[in-house]
Amino acid sequence: MAQVFDRSSNALARASLVLSGLIVIALGVTLNSLQRSPWVTRQGQRPDQPVPFSHKHHVEGLGLQCQYCHVSVEKSSYAGIPPTKTCMNCHSQIWTNAQLLEPVRQSWATGASLQWIKVHDLPDFVYFNHEIHVNKGIGCASCHGRVDEMPLMYEQNSLQMEWCLNCHRNPSVNLRPTSEIYNMAWAAPSTDKPVWCAPNGTSGPTAQQLGCVNSDPASNNPHLAQMTNPVGIPTGPGGVQTVANAPVIPMPINYVKFTSQEELGHYLMKQYHIRTANELSSCEVCHR
């Protein structure tokens, strides 16, 4: 009986083996990149909102502070979406006839909520908490990006688990002084732009324990430099200055200069008592 396949089909068989292997790999690669693509993560997408609210205009242009609207960011897991009342605080006076703001006035008149589309939408099994992040030195911009430069709000980062873990495994890369939390333009220290920090000797909430400045306290700010070594006030143990009959005035004493985020990050990890990477990346931190 004649052979069904001739010799040349061996090459074909080999090629198809290789090819199917490649197809499997390609499929894997495709799925993998699909999973991380903005189509799934919505990174960079600007959903249609009832009002084309511009963070750029309100933050950069008008200089509104984040917490004016997101009131509970320091004290609750939710940062808070402002009630219509917050909008109307100003817009009952200005732009009262703007067509853009019709839904806001409608909401105010009827008592029905404005229906925003969630831009930063975590899965329901993730229990994210804003308060602990902003209290421990993670700035708004670290996750939300330069909101002050976004005319329409979009998601800067993927908010996928690997992205969370990048920081939870090594928080030092994103830590900043708590005084700079709401500073959208804050940049990590560099040799050109160093940061000076010093504990102010108080105990209590993390957010109040450290003073940081962007200019050299010794040379550029004589007033501050003077205060760092006040005359006549003895320095107690642990750097706490006490005078028996005078009110305690906590003051920075020993400024440390930082020229890189790595140095600053490790310093802040210690100062803010950030938990270890092991603890921060444990499952129950985010999933319950």
Binding site: W39, V40, R42, P47, S72, K75, S76, S77, Y78, G80, I81, P82, P83, T84, K85, S107, W108, G111, A112, S113, L114, Q115, W116, I117, K118, D121, P123
Partner: peptide, 21 residues
């Protein structure tokens, strides 16, 4: 893809309410 989720903020938020607490 997760479906779009909506947010329904208060029109006037009760003064003592801290959502999430």
């Amino acid at each position: 893809k997760q479906p779009d989720e909506q947010i329904f903020p208060y029109v006037k938020q009760p003064e003592d309410l801290v959502l999430g607490k």
